[in-house]
Amino acid sequence: MSALGTGKEILAGWVVLGCLLVAAVLISLTVGQIMITPAELLRGLMTGTGPGSLTLRVLRGPSTMTAVGAGAVLGVSGTIFQILLRNPLAAPDVMGFMSGAGCAVVAGVAFGLLIPLPILAAIGGLVAAALVAGLSFHRGAKQSPLTLILVGIGIGFFASAVSSFLVIRMPPQEASDAQRWLAGSLSARNWGHVLQVFGLGALLFIVLALQVRAMALLELGDELAAGLGARVERARYGLICTGVLLAAVGVAVAGPVPFVAMMAGPLGMRIAGVKHPASRLTAAAIAGATITVFAEVISRSAIPGLQLPVGVMTGIMGAPYLLWLLWKEVEAGEV
């Protein structure tokens, strides 16, 4: 990366990144069918009464905070895979893990299983990841990241088709809700969702913090990492599991929102101008949260009186980024 700066520039980068998130959250809380001024919000926060308080507690607060949490875990998850596979295209959304998680949740609802959504999502994500790893295995040949990504795309297609198949079996109202959720949706979130995504997310961030040293070593290459005392295979599987579980936590509260996981890492790294894995992951968490909150506010205020699923918005934002990424690589003659 050429965008690396000096200490001062990096500090400025972090400030910009933080300000963007704060701005996004403020816009999300104030903009909507009824506009609420920041002053009213502050009054609501202090006194617990008035329109500001209602907005914070019930109307917009929970959705906004769920967006922050889901965006952060998805951003970190995407960055883990991007670092492990050394490829900006490697992300749990592109590689089908999130579709797998979504599929498991829909299956749980369709068959009336009494298993909490995060556990269903985790099972689905891990099964999808195992399938991707297993099916891209060639006897006697080293797995190429590109094969993994293509097989992952295939698993994603399959999981989405199974989800659509299961939705048909549901009663109409439930089917309509499930369809919306599968597009990635943050409407009608409550504080339970916020607590869930922040609680589980924090737990997994701690687990990830313990693995960051190994991750930095893996970045140097397998031989060098092994020489420096890392247990390469074990560290890699551990990180993959953490990444899949983080994605599952995001899916459980917001559905399989596309492209946040893929965009967050590169965006955060570019703005903050950092390179070390720990800083990249932190930047990705902030960037992912910012992207999701922005997408959430646009998706519910772009067309008056209508709430689009947030995933429609991240698709409209993320797909051009992917096209630009590919175009740049065509120009450079890479990939």
Partner: peptide
Amino acid sequence: TLAGVAINALLLSLVSA
């Protein structure tokens, strides 16, 4: 394939919207 995935995602998101 990836270009197709991106164009698909973009256009289908717009169609949905």
